[in-house]
Simulated assay, not measured.
Amino acid sequence: MICDLKYIYIYIDNQICRGKLINSNLYKYTNTTSSPVPIQERAMVVFTYADEFTSPVSPARLFKALILDARNLIPKIIPSVVTSIEIVEGDGLSAGSIRKINFVEGSEVKCVKNLVEEVDEENFIYRYSMIEGEALILEKVGKISYEVKFEERAEGGSLNKMTSIYYTKGDVVLSQEEITAGKGKALAIYKIVEGYLLQNPHAYAN
């Protein structure tokens, strides 16, 4: 979390800025302006969380299964959770594409829409933002961005990193439960796909 008692980090004009508390109503953003900015004009508070997981599966296979062919594989192996993954705009892989993940009837969340920002097939990096879904979270945030990176391990397998950036509305602070709920779903899907790849060593091997 990039926040402490003396400073607050916010998102203004496409820049992450550090603000120093002057009094209960004013923050001074030393890296954007020399004039104090009224607290009500603050756009967003930024919180960053990072997780790392190791896997015996190679980065290339995980990237192909979880990112490149997700729309086909995930509904196939987890039909009790995900009914389909639709490409709403674009081709699903290029920047600006929108993927819609539809969950089974009765799920807490009916669907989630993700905006693709980058798919780097050479370095196994996927960047995207959630733009619809998880209603309780999106009531409090203006945007949630994710970066998923799959890296080779010297001893084999992969080191997989996921960074989540929450741009909250105003002074909203997200609870640990709200953060872990969304990450828990993603991790569950990740582990199921990993298990599938371990049981099918030839899948996505080429």
Rank of each mutant, 00 (worst) to 15 (best):
G106L: 04
S107V: 02
S158F: 07
A135H: 12
L115N: 05
R71E: 15
E121P: 03
T163P: 08
D120G: 01
V193M: 00
K100T: 13
R153M: 08
P59F: 06
L115T: 04
L174M: 05
S97W: 12
V82D: 02
I144Q: 10
E178W: 07
E132C: 04
H202S: 15
L136P: 04
I74N: 01
Y196K: 02
A43N: 11
I131Q: 06
I87V: 14
Q15L: 14
V88I: 14
V82F: 03
E152S: 04
I2G: 12
I165A: 08
Q15A: 13
Y126F: 15
Y9I: 08
V173I: 11
K149Q: 07
L68P: 01
V81P: 01
A135R: 04
G184I: 07
L197K: 00
R61T: 05
K169H: 03
T54G: 09
I8T: 07
V104A: 11
S84R: 13
A188I: 14
E151R: 08
V112P: 03
D120K: 02
I98Q: 10
L159V: 08
N31Q: 11
V116I: 15
E139F: 01
N31A: 02
P56A: 13
A186L: 08
A65F: 01
Y190C: 06
K143I: 09
A43Y: 10
T54A: 10
N14T: 10
N206R: 13
A135Y: 03
R153C: 13
C111Q: 06
E134T: 04
K140Y: 05
G19F: 05
Y204H: 12
C17V: 09
G142W: 01
S24V: 07
I131N: 08
Q40F: 14
I77Q: 09
K76H: 15
K183N: 08
L159I: 11
I87D: 01
E52R: 05
G142C: 02
F150W: 06
E52W: 06
S80R: 09
Q15G: 11
K76N: 12
N160R: 11
N31M: 03
N14C: 11
M162V: 15
E132V: 03
